[in-house]
Design a protein around this nucleic acid. Structure first.
Lengths: 244, 244
DNA sequence: CAAAGCATCAGGGATTCCCCGCATCGCGGA
DNA sequence: TCCGCGATGCGGGGAATCCCTGATGCTTTG
């Protein structure tokens, strides 16, 4: 329902002749937001929006035709399909830098986005200038993360340093993973203890260890991540399954 | 951290002297989006943005000082308190028209928004021009609804049985839904109480009522369902873009 | 107007959370 | 071999929660 490229890819642009500007493609399903970011970016002398897209398919063609230096994409294009798109982009245009925009603070997605090849992760709540900062940082080949998020992810990596960026869930022992999975299926501490014929205290102990390994602060976070994980496992199982 | 009124309320405006323009206040927690909508609106000869706000509290003061004709508010303010703000606004400024912006196609929220006194409901996925259309319609005292949403709500009202098989979630009160949504976003009882400026006891009470209405036995189940629901809501919004 | 529903909060016992510590077992190294 | 180390299993105890039972206004509705 919306035009893919509001400006002709390589024509002189309305925005006062820029010389060798950084070329940017925006992917977001909210026209209003595309307009906002576009406006903001085009106000900069060295940045230029050369394409827009509202979904994954259009994003790929837009990138193909406009050959941007950076893509700014919203991963909340329906949860999974956002990360999917990101992977596709990095597969077909490995040298293209990608800055990920997101609605929420969910570090779950930040982590996955980076693993999928993003160069940065920024929230929509962020001040507008930060988006420009992030854009330029990503362009220089650096990684942009909000301070808080960055700190947390750093010590996740340091704690269980594995250069191949395996998810910290790999670090869980068998028993811990079992408990984690049960939590993700919606079971409470006591039912888990009963199901495994163990003391409630033991389950509490496992939960504590899991929290530590996954760098989680509260029980609520633990449950949230567990459910998320179980969900994503279901999806993985459908395509590239049983790899253990 | 953001200016409440970018332009002096009654001074000649940068945007080419408008005469008696419609005065608009924008409430949204995404600076990028405020920028986008603001830009769009100010390009119109008869419309003028006289204030912005990023949360409920600032929204009320902004409205008080800038005396707008219409308020454009995002009900998914940080995942919460959008409907609440709407009610407050209509309580204190009954004659002010309110157009509600929303991320997704959540007909749940549309229905509630209208009941709470909104004059229109429009999705962020909508084309930019539609926002202007909606704004003008609302200004004339009419109600704006997207075609699809309008149709759906009509036959919900007419035929007692709604097409969407009324999930028990419809039975939740506004406040309860708000709490439910926050739970689904991974927040614990205390953080929710703080975010809503309420007693922990009140949140506990809401949780109890939600459990009752949704027929859930334990707190764990409640959290599980809440997360599931939030997830599914996100997906609904994404599919709306493809489904036509 | 009466009845019902909503939103707010309290008290108090049952559970869970979360910080400690402790024991055993097996495995890989000094 | 003996030592450390992680995995597994458990406990104490205080803080926080869950989960009952009310209770009080206020609105909506019949």
């Amino acid at each position: 329902m919306k035009a893919t490229a509001p400006q002709p890819p390589s024509a002189p642009v309305a925005n006062g002749g820029k010389k060798n500007p950084t070329r940017i493609v925006i992917v977001d399903d909210h026209p209003l937001l595309r307009k906002g970011v576009g406006q903001l970016i085009n106000n900069e002398k060295d940045l230029l929006v050369v394409g827009e897209a509202e979904d994954a398919a259009k994003a790929l063609t837009a990138i193909e035709t406009s050959k941007p230096d950076v893509a700014l994409i919203d991963i909340s294009l329906g949860g999974a399909s956002g990360i999917e798109l990101l992977k596709n982009i990095k597969a077909r245009f490995p040298k293209l830098q990608v800055l990920v925009l997101s609605m929420h603070d969910e570090s779950v997605y930040a982590h996955r986005a980076l693993r999928a090849g993003a160069s940065g992760y920024i929230m929509k709540q962020e001040a507008t200038e930060k988006v420009l900062t992030a854009l330029r940082k990503v362009l220089r080949g650096e990684v942009y993360l909000s301070d808080r998020l960055g700190a947390r992810m750093l010590n996740t990596l340091v704690g269980g340093r594995s250069s191949t960026a395996t998810s910290p869930i790999e670090a869980l022992s068998d028993r811990e993973l079992e408990v984690f999975s049960l939590i993700g299926q919606g079971h409470g501490t006591r039912p888990i203890a009963e199901k495994l014929h163990l003391s409630v205290k033991t389950i509490e102990s496992h939960r504590a260890h899991i929290k530590e390994k996954l760098n989680l602060q509260t029980a609520t976070e633990l449950v949230h991540h567990a459910i998320q994980w179980v969900q994503s496992e279901r999806v993985v199982g459908a395509e590239a399954a049983y790899s253990e």
